[in-house]
């Protein structure tokens, strides 16, 4: 029993990381119809920022805003060049561009941060364990879980309850009509890309205390984030959340049941969901003008 509770908590923590990285990817794909394969690179960049920040002795909690800002700044630069030239082009061209960039970024990070597995110096406050049903559980993971829930709630509020979110949801449907209301949609795109990249890096910073940071993690996270977005259904917040939970739980429990076949098992579950619901768990039904 204790074992299952602990594993469920682990699954939730993993789901939170998947959710945050998946949301960033999802909003860019549904709003801008842009396939950004550098999203995993931004996750890993965020992980490295957290690792190095926490090694400097600066207040540890600032590592997370630093990672977010670092990722958002990278997003602003990428938006200006070369992403803007590719927003209107085919997905294949976007894949070629962003995949190529992700390879370049992977090499740059290996060159800059080294090929070893880098782990952050988790602050004293988060280093210990708490006992849940007499079983030890790392405090850091609870911290990630809580931050993820707060962030997800904040994002939901931003997209669902503010005028800024309404502008973005309107742009998903028809950018021309939004322009005709006097809104500069190019700025909306830039802001959303920066937010997405910031979220990718922030999820990397949060995840670094669990998954560490090493070359190759960028690709792993990218694939998982993609699965979350596609299985969840494009353009739905709740879809991404549900699918992050499903993937988090299947991956955690598949590892428990059979470590060798865990990837195969969890991918089979996701493939099964897509056969059952080709548009994703929660499809955007009211995407009308």
């Amino acid at each position: 029993m204790e074992y299952y509770v602990i594993q469920s908590l682990n699954a939730l923590v993993f789901a939170v990381i998947l959710l945050l990285s998946g949301l960033g990817l999802s909003v860019v794909m549904s709003l801008m119809n842009f396939v950004n394969l550098t999203h995993g690179s931004l996750y890993l960049l965020g992980s490295y920022i957290a690792v190095f920040w926490m090694a400097t002795g600066q207040p540890w909690y600032l590592a997370f805003p630093a990672a977010f800002l670092g990722g958002a700044a990278a997003g602003l630069i990428l938006d200006r060049f070369p992403f803007q030239l590719f927003y209107a082009r085919t997905h294949l061209m976007q894949v070629l561009l962003t995949y190529g960039l992700s390879v370049v970024f992977a090499d740059l990070m290996r060159w800059g941060f080294g090929a070893h597995i880098a782990t952050p110096q988790i602050p004293e406050l988060l280093r210990g364990v708490v006992f849940i049903l007499d079983t030890p559980f790392p405090i850091y993971r609870l911290f990630v879980l809580a931050s993820g829930v707060v962030l997800a709630a904040g994002l939901w509020f931003l997209f669902d309850r503010t005028i800024w979110g309404a502008v973005v949801r309107a742009c998903v449907v028809d950018t021309r009509i939004v322009e005709a209301l006097g809104i500069n949609t190019k700025h909306v795109f830039t802001a959303v890309l920066a937010l997405s990249c910031g979220l990718g890096a922030l999820s990397g910073a949060l995840g670094s205390g669990i998954l560490a940071a090493f070359p190759g993690l960028d690709e792993e996270i990218l694939i998982l984030a993609f699965i979350v977005v596609v299985v969840g259904g494009l353009g739905t917040f709740s879809g991404v959340a549900v699918s992050a939970l499903v993937l988090g739980f299947t991956m955690t429990f598949a590892k428990m049941l059979s470590p060798e076949f865990s990837n195969l098992m969890s991918l089979a579950v996701m493939a099964g969901i897509l056969i059952w619901r080709p548009d994703g768990l929660i499809a955007a039904t009211r995407r009308e003008v």
């Binding site: 309107a170 009509i177 955007a284």
Partner: peptide, 30 residues
């Protein structure tokens, strides 16, 4: 549009995924 010229496009261009008020607030935002 910001020069003071508005359009009701053919088909009206109402955002069905937004509330009535959010449709209006978009214009105030812009």
């Amino acid at each position: 549009v910001r020069l003071g010229i508005g359009i009701v496009p053919q088909g009206r261009g109402i955002f069905g995924n937004l509330t009535v008020e959010d449709n209006l607030r978009l214009a105030l935002f812009g």
